[in-house]
Amino acid sequence: MGASLAAAYERCRALHRLHGRTYYLATRLLPAWKRRHVHALYGFTRYADEIVDRTEGRSPQERAAELAAWSAEFLRGLRGGHTDDPLLPAVLHTIQVFDIDLEDFRKFLGSMAMDLTVTQYETYDDLLEYMEGSAAVIGTMMLPILESTDRAAAREPARQLGLAFQLTNFIRDVAEDLQRGRIYLPQRDLARFGVARADLERALARGRSSEKIKSLIRYYTSVARRHYALAAPGIPMLAPASQACMNAAFRLYGGILDEVEAQDHDVFSRRATVPKWRRLAVALSCILAQPAAPNLSAVDIPQPREGAGLLDLRGTVA
């Protein structure tokens, strides 16, 4: 491996370690030769996200131009052209090694572009359309690296796990996203729980949630847990060497929801994080455990309150 390619993989690993502590720890459970490829995919998605979220002193038009230029550089690299970008060589190499579907990358970049112009979503189906590119495709990108006995059967659980992880982030980061001018939780469900944008802004200013906001978060915690339940059967379909990693990621991201519940669904009082001791304990238990599906006792699905909407088997709000 050339020096520039090694440096690109190292840059992706550093981004992963700095910004994705939970996922980075889980990745440590993979065989060493696979880790750099997971870091490459994380680095690609993280850097695109940073372009979109780097709002200080930069207009949406400037960020759109930067994202378009970076996307063009990526496409040029796919065609075999030279790139001076510090991380793209690792991504391009990973795509080549595993023959990852390029359509997933197109969908991802499309969702990143949406973040520059779309600040809210009317329904959960609308949000799912965005999450298809921003989250579900991450799961399917990962499948060739993780390996599976039946990739076709594992595809839908992989999509669901991507959705579960991102919805967990949306729940945890309501306050942070609001500061960026975005509300990911759908407007129709906010209205159903009697929550307006002004209520969220008051909660941000006070540093605590109202009871109506807590009810909204409680409901969406149940939605996220449904996605986890739909994802769980896919983990035993992975190669045995990959199962500890994804079992740990499954449990650690689910643990963020546990922390949200432990603080009475008040996502404005503090950012819900899994304590370091618990992250390490989960990692150790996943190393020692026999390959198996995750224990769903950690992701039991509470019933939504009456009239709040039900989930169909695709994980959408009906």
Rank of each mutant, 00 (worst) to 15 (best):
T55H: 06
D300G: 08
C245G: 02
Y23L: 12
V97P: 07
P304K: 06
A198M: 02
M237V: 13
Q61D: 15
Q243W: 12
E306H: 12
L313W: 10
T149A: 14
L5Y: 03
G139V: 05
A231G: 07
S59L: 11
D115W: 08
S222V: 09
P89L: 11
H82I: 07
A152C: 14
A8F: 00
E211C: 00
F108W: 12
H82N: 08
V97Y: 11
W277I: 10
T168M: 10
D99V: 03
E259G: 10
D199P: 02
G43Y: 01
F108P: 00
V267F: 06
P240D: 05
F170D: 04
E129M: 03
S134H: 14
E259H: 09
E261F: 00
E103A: 10
F193G: 06
R251L: 14
M237N: 10
E176S: 13
T140R: 15
A244Q: 12
E132P: 00
T119N: 02
Q166A: 08
A281P: 02
T83S: 15
P291S: 13
I145N: 12
L284W: 03
R106L: 10
A65L: 12
C286L: 04
L161I: 10
R270C: 15
A153G: 07
L78H: 04
M246H: 06
D49T: 05
T117R: 13
D300S: 11
A272R: 01
D101W: 00
E122N: 09
T55G: 01
L78Y: 06
V52L: 12
E50A: 05
R36M: 05
G207K: 04
I100P: 05
D126L: 05
T22N: 15
A48C: 14
R76M: 05
V274P: 01
E306K: 13
G254R: 06
E50Y: 00
E66M: 09
G181K: 10
P186V: 03
H82V: 11
D53H: 02
R151Y: 07
P275D: 13
P240R: 10
L88V: 03
C245N: 08
P302Y: 14
E73S: 12
S242A: 14
D85N: 13
A153V: 07
K212R: 15
G139Y: 05
P240K: 08
I145C: 13
Q290N: 07
M237Y: 13
T123V: 07
F105Q: 07
R271M: 08
S297I: 06
K107A: 06
R17F: 05
P86F: 01
D266E: 10
A3I: 10
L313K: 11
D264M: 06
L296P: 02
Q187G: 02
L102S: 12
D199V: 04
A32N: 02
V223S: 02
G194F: 11
S209L: 08
F165E: 00
A158R: 09
Y47N: 04
R17G: 04
R46H: 08
R151Q: 13
C12I: 06
M131Q: 11
Q179T: 12
R218P: 04
F250L: 02
L15C: 07
R226N: 12
L163S: 01
A272Q: 06
G57Q: 08
A205Y: 07
I287T: 10
L67T: 04
